[in-house]
Nucleic acid binder design. Structure first.
Lengths: 135, 135
DNA sequence: CTTGACCTTCCCATGATGGGAAGCCTTACA
DNA sequence: TGTAAGGCTTCCCATCATGGGAAGGTCAAG
């Protein structure tokens, strides 16, 4: 099948398939006489694997690792689990950061009367003013 | 003061200060005879404002808006609050997505025995295998 | 006067993706 | 058989915010 169909069947855009090939994440496929890329079921399967990993937030680099482990019969499941565990830890760090931002913003919004007056605790905070007590 | 000191005092790198100037987020400062940028307390204050907004996860675009509102005496606090509220909503969407990833990964890691055997539910899932019941 | 630390501009890289142009190929239809 | 539409190819550019580094000018301390 051509790249368009492989894209549709895997959920990875044609642009991205070519990019993955370029960076060596996937092997260059065969070509027709007229230089069209030709894919089979196996390639679609690999692309779906990649798609799923990306959806779970793994970076291309981590995905490369996982893909290697997937295709390596002698891998140990603990290798994969370590990658996944590390990734969970990274995601949780990120979540914590975002939650910190939300908490601060929520407090500021709560303190902001939000009417036609220009007085605004949010801007005061951004500008580095000391927080007023007792809102 | 020179750019290096402004950077140190504001927490914004010299590279970024020049970039912010280039994209019009901040005004071009005065120059010495030898073409060095010259900053004063006001500029450091603005840079700190920007730094804080960025730390809270506002994009450059949102920061531009907030900066404009900060310097606009006729602004209404509701304008600022709307920006902040929108930003909170965006952050929470992002947090939800990350939490979804963590939940899935956690389940997979829980199901993975993580030893020397190659059998690995995480890879099975990435490869699109139907989940086994009961783990 | 030298040396080292600072400043200037300019270009390039990141990570993952999309947009689009120019040109070739295939398929379907009149 | 001719043509038009749409798919494919490569190549370049843009994003967003940031950092790295080179080449060259400037300043301050010794």
């Amino acid at each position: 099948m051509n790249i368009g169909q492989a894209a549709e069947r895997s959920g990875v855009s044609a642009k991205m398939i070519r990019y993955y090939e370029e960076i060596g994440l996937i092997e260059p496929p065969g070509r027709t006489e007229s230089n069209y890329r030709v894919y089979g079921e196996d390639e679609v399967h690999i692309l779906r694997f990649i798609k799923r990993a990306r959806t779970l937030g793994f970076s291309i680099e981590e995905t490369t690792l996982l893909l290697g482990l997937w295709q390596d019969k002698s891998r140990t499941s603990s290798e994969v689990r370590d990658i996944a565990s590390d990734h969970i830890a990274a995601l949780e760090t990120k979540i914590g950061e975002l939650q910190g931002m939300v908490k601060t913003l929520r407090h500021l919004v709560h303190c902001c009367h939000g009417d036609d007056r220009p007085d605004c605790p949010i801007l005061d905070d951004l500008a580095g003013a000391p927080a007023k007590k007792g809102h």
